[in-house]
Design a protein around this nucleic acid. Structure first.
Length: 570
RNA sequence: GCGCCUGUAGCUCAUUUGGAUAGAGCAUCGGAUUUCUAAUCCGAGGGUAGUAGGUUCGAGUCCUACCAGGCGUGCCA
């Protein structure tokens, strides 16, 4: 509909201002907030008024006069500052119901994606412990965004980047070894301040002990108790042998990743691909990328370290790729990983990061630019953390101390649907507060129930219809019976759904969809309360049922994108 | 210090690439069910959009300064 109006305006512009410099491809047509202004409006007259030195209203009048007749437009008006308001004919409004009933689960889809290959990388939490609520928002955001992109015709791969090669993993191994030795021999003092302390460390140690006995016991490290952690790790690898250390490492990573996968599945998130940092070292991609950077003058050596000239790309300072001790940094493998994304021929890479990583954006964008020559191919979206509250008390979290609320706990407390919906009601770059107590104690205040209830009510109507031994038969001609204000409101809402999907996708803003579906639920509840759907008159009843059936599809289609259930009964 | 993000009703947040009277939910108060599910609906009160300027037909939205909060500023990941 928007496009039809745009074309009409374009045509009229050509008639009136031919030869002049008018942005024909940039005509704005928007849905009206208020019904009294009509259904759609355009501000084109005000936009171009200054360049013709005429009053906006005068230009608007001129444009309206030469507008072509169209049976879908009932009326066109010019209002005060210079808006042109369009009133859509009833016929054309009803046709949206017909369209939905024909397209069903396809209603809302579009093809702007044109099958472009998109890689969405998200969560990517270090496999050093279970996912906690800090990861939740990004996880849900990334998953929903992927669903939206699919709906818009992109070919989407969801990927989790597993940091299994760095120092943090070694610390995890040491943490497990510590508990393992406590299980074998309490006198073995293996303490170190910075180790991981969660219960899962005990679980892994116990599994190791159960399966392998005392095979990994070591006795000669007490002298290194107070050295720095790097030295400590090196020493352990030496005493234990690299082979045994790697064995335990593999065990740890598998254990933690399994746990993460289970959590994600419970949150209705599944990944297409798990990319391991270690593979970049093993297949020499890292070496290759470092060589390329060196050769092309993007690096230099200083203080026995290799530096990346990230200041060439808006970074505040240059960054180290290879440390003095010849270990590579996280950045080095991350650059190799992004080079790999280009090599894997994705048209668009989307990274979803916690907002605390924003300082990292320019250096990765810079590196990406070096390999792709096109900056626009990498989109980095930052998701603000949700502050977690229990009542008035803020919950502080730290993976190290082991004091964190896991994603699993949150899922159990508030449920998958509520969690996903709640996370998605806010713009992702906006800080948000998540009060667990409120979400737990006040289930009926949760917006997700409001939406699901609207859908369940519709289903209930159809159940009642069956009970009355009646049936629903659809006839397009019947739709003219929909004359109530509430019915037209619902029709308007339903017709804007494809636009919402499109603009949510373009702007990477899933919250537009949760807002939309809540508004639709509101219209449906209001209608349900005021009007009886199962009326005596066959034509009217079928018309109303058609409308409800259409609404049902839109509820289901948006629920699929949001990733929640739409129960038939509550 | 420097950089990025944020500031909208008592609280949590919306506000469609700058549009018409800034909207929801929660909380408060008052109503609605012989009816397809009351997890619902209808109504009321509640605002200097952090502050001060600027840009223009028009600013919560863009620009500048200041104030307040968050994050970043590692040869950590």
């Amino acid at each position: 509909m928007k496009n039809i109006i745009k074309d009409l305006i374009k045509d009229s512009l050509n008639k009136n201002f031919k030869g002049n410099d008018i942005p024909l491809n940039n005509i704005e047509v928007n849905l009206c907030k208020d019904q009294k202004f009509g259904d759609y409006s355009s501000n084109i007259a005000m936009k171009i008024a200054s360049s013709f030195n005429e009053k906006p209203t005068a230009i608007a009048e001129k444009l309206v006069e030469s507008l072509q007749e169209n049976r879908k437009i009932k009326k066109v008006e010019v209002v005060k500052p210079g808006f042109i308001n369009f009133f859509v004919s009833e016929d054309s409004k009803f046709s949206i119901v017909d369209k939905i009933l024909k397209e069903k689960s396809d209603y809302g889809k579009n093809s702007v994606g044109n099958n472009l290959r998109v890689l969405v990388e998200f969560v990517s939490a270090n496999p050093t412990g279970p996912l906690h609520v800090g990861h939740g928002r990004g996880a849900v955001f990334g998953d929903c965004l992927s669903n939206m992109l699919k709906e818009s015709g992109y070919s989407v791969t969801k990927e989790y980047y597993v940091n299994d090669a760095g120092k943090q993993i070694d610390i995890l191994v040491v943490s497990v070894l510590q508990r393992y030795h406590e299980l074998i021999d309490n006198n073995f003092e293996f303490s170190y301040e910075d180790l991981y302390k969660g219960d899962y460390i005990w679980d892994i140690a116990a599994e190791l002990h159960r399966n392998e006995g005392a095979k990994f016991q070591i006795n000669s490290l007490i002298d290194y108790k107070n050295t720095n952690i790097d030295l400590y790790i090196t020493k352990i690898k030496e005493v234990l042998s690299d082979k045994k250390f790697s064995y335990i490492k593999k065990l740890c990573i598998n254990y933690v990743l399994e746990n993460i996968k289970i959590n994600l599945v419970e949150a209705n998130i599944d990944f297409d691909s798990w990319f391991f940092e270690s593979s970049l070292v093993e297949d020499k991609s890292l070496d290759r990328v470092l060589e390329f950077l060196k050769k092309n003058n993007h690096t230099y050596s200083k203080d026995k370290a290799l530096w990346f000239k990230s200041t060439d790309y808006n970074d505040e300072k240059d960054r180290v790729l290879v440390k003095e001790n010849q270990d590579h940094t996280y950045l080095a493998t991350d650059i190799a990983y992004h080079e790999k994304k280009i090599e894997r021929k994705y048209d668009l890479s989307i990274n979803i990061w916690g907002a605390d990583h924003h300082g990292y954006v320019s250096r990765i964008q810079g590196a990406f630019q070096i390999f792709s020559k096109k900056r626009s191919n990498l989109k980095i979206l930052l998701v603000q953390f949700a502050n977690l509250y229990r009542g008035k008390e803020k919950v502080t979290m730290s993976t190290r101390s082991g004091e964190f609320v896991t994603l699993n706990q949150l899922l159990k407390e508030v449920g998958k649907d509520a969690m996903r919906f709640f996370y998605l009601t806010r713009k992702s770059d906006q800080h948000m507060d998540f009060d667990i107590e409120l979400a737990k104690s006040n289930n009926n205040n949760n917006p997700v129930y409001y939406v699901q209830y609207a859908h369940a009510r519709i289903c209930s109507i159809f159940r009642q219809l069956k009970k009355e031994k009646n049936s629903f038969s659809y006839d397009k001609e019947n739709l003219i019976n929909l004359r109530e204000e509430e019915e037209l409101n619902i029709i308007n809402k339903l017709s804007s759904y494809p636009d919402v999907i499109l603009s949510a996708t373009k702007k990477y803003e899933p919250h537009l969809i949760t807002n939309y579906v809540r508004e639709l639920a509101q219209e449906v509840h209001a209608y349900y309360n005021k009007h009886q759907i199962l009326v005596e008159n066959n034509d009217l009843r079928n018309a109303r049922l058609s409308l409800m059936e259409a609404a049902k599809y839109v509820f289901q289609n948006s629920a699929k994108i949001i990733g929640i259930e739409m129960p038939e009964k509550m």
